[in-house]
Design a protein around this nucleic acid. Structure first.
Lengths: 339, 339
DNA sequence: CTGAAAGCGCTTACAG
DNA sequence: CTGAAAGCGCTTACAG
């Protein structure tokens, strides 16, 4: 069967005996159309199974109905849940979600430029990818509404958590269980990537210890690249310490899983010999009973997406900064010291 | 600073002293341009920092450079890894990836129609969402290249696994370890959603047992909705059987995690008292040491995306059907019977 | 090899 | 309230 030609606005106009401008007006809900003609046009559109051509509208209006979501999708497990929240909100809108996966700092730089220079998107939502001042300027110059999620910039609306507080919460949970020899395991701060969460959580860990008159000694801080192998190495180092820690604060659930695995393969019992706290509360945390600092990943995506929809096509007010709540979810990987 | 107007093809033409048609030709790499003018135009484009307007090109050519990836993204963990593979391949192309999340059968039906009726996409890649015959016809009529991943339809190119074989592999692994009382835990076959993987894996489980002269008795088959709570219930039912199974074949890693959790909270030791096999080999499987049937999720996305790129803008040959390899990855949740 | 022109399907002042 | 027309920025026969 041949491809049947779709009806255009011209077909509708001709059939309804009006001008294309009028059809366009009813299409866009303009008030300046008599009830009579509106109805006639509407009926004709229905008869012809007319659907507006997005491409033509895009060229005419300069808008694409596409929003870009730029994120380290391949490498960062927490991004997935945020993305689900974003997708959920965008489903209720007229916007399509284009996924821009970014794995390296170079890619991030390129994508920020491409998005600002191009005409593919009506808005940008960037996750965990802090823009440079230049990026922000280019975006502003291009008039592209932008919202940040899990990263920060003073000139942009953003949804974040208080990472320092997160580190404090995790550590305080352990302190309250009686632990005193507490270690911190974090991720390399890739300078170029500007991930700072891990460093700030460590800061929180220190502050919490200080409040108890304790210090976070250098040997008890282990920072390395992500991945199972690296996490195992870091864990082994901590477990080999003359005064082995009784608890470890990690900077992600994934890392915590690696610690659990390494510990169990060294015959270290969880939580009797070692308490472990994760960060994020990924789905898997509940399955394996991981005590963790919960951040509302799904809700963060929803909030950011709503913020973005608010900005699209509106005059911009002052950039908002929403800080989401954190809480410790105690499960089976932590217990009282000396249990 | 005001929004600086982007240069158009007209600006370039004027500055270079040629017609817009010529500029368009060098843009599209047409052979019919003299080396001289080509170079002059190229230089001018560079001077003016010219970038072609996608929207205009889309209207003119009828193509959007957007491919839709439709998937149960919010509900199906395996989709994430597939999506990563797709994204990776698409990054090397000129196509953007639009994510169409589908959570219910209704949404699936609506999206299939919308994609076929609309003009938003140049191609469609559907994951785990079997189309109806009508859907396929509409897609064909719309001339929309379509590829299926993890679902099947005779008229469409598709990338699948042999689920029956997967069930056999898992079961055979346990049989070879000496297990004889083997249970199967699967997911409800939501008729309307046309998920059939679980039922086919169960079939494979039966076949493997039969080859050993064993039967899969009704009490040893438990099927229910997904989710931790349901999985716990199913596990408790199996563990309460007068002749408790020594091993369970599950139809997903997520479900297997639920079994591990339920078992351990009942004081059943893994793997000494109970062996468990998952399906998929999600990242988390390695972390928790789950024995599982590995299917190449990432590679499946890559393969499907490549198939899609091949179809875009090409005349269609016979639909290919690629069947990916499966293998058992033995880890720490299975051991010899009576260990 | 190259230019002028029509056309893609809309939107939006501009008249009336 | 409504129609005719220009315009969005490209592509692509059609002449030459």
């Amino acid at each position: 069967m041949a491809v049947r030609q779709r009806a255009t606005i011209g077909d509708v106009a001709a059939r309804a005996g009006v001008g294309v401008g009028t059809v366009s007006r009813v299409l866009n809900g303009s008030r300046n159309v008599s009830e009579d003609t509106r109805e006639r046009v509407l009926r004709t559109m229905c008869d012809l199974d007319y659907r507006p051509n997005r491409r033509a509208r895009a060229l005419s209006t300069g808008r694409t109905q596409n929003v870009a979501v730029m994120a380290p999708f391949a490498t960062e497990p927490s991004v997935v849940e945020r993305l689900r929240g974003i997708s959920r909100v965008l489903q209720g809108s007229d916007y399509d979600l284009t996924l821009l996966d970014v794995a390296t700092a170079d890619q991030r730089d390129r994508q920020y430029r491409a998005v600002a220079a191009g005409d593919r998107f009506d808005a940008l939502l960037a996750i965990s990818l802090t823009p440079t001042d230049d990026d922000v300027k280019r975006l502003a110059r291009a008039g592209l509404p932008t919202v940040l999620l899990d990263c920060d910039h003073p000139d942009l609306p953003r949804v974040v958590i208080d990472d320092v507080r997160g580190g404090m919460l995790a550590t305080r949970h352990l302190l309250q269980l009686g632990h005193r020899r507490i270690a911190f395991m974090g991720e390399d701060a890739d300078e170029r990537f500007r991930f700072t969460a891990s460093a700030r959580r460590r800061e929180g860990c220190e502050l919490a210890l200080e409040a108890y008159g304790l210090a976070l000694e250098a040997p008890y801080v282990r920072v390395g690249p992500r991945g199972r192998a690296a996490t195992h190495r870091l864990t082994d180092e901590l477990l080999a310490l003359p005064e082995r820690p009784s608890a470890i604060v990690t900077s992600s659930d994934t890392q915590a899983l690696g610690v659990l695995e390494a510990a169990s393969s060294s015959g270290v019992r969880i939580p009797q010999d070692l308490s472990v706290v994760g960060f994020d509360d990924l789905d898997v945390a509940a399955y394996v009973g991981l005590t963790t600092v919960r951040q509302p990943l799904h809700a963060s995506g929803e909030t950011a997406a709503r913020l973005l929809l608010e900005r699209v096509g509106q005059t911009l007010g002052d950039p908002v900064r929403k800080v989401l709540e954190l809480e410790v979810v105690p499960r089976r990987t932590t217990t009282v010291a000396g249990a």
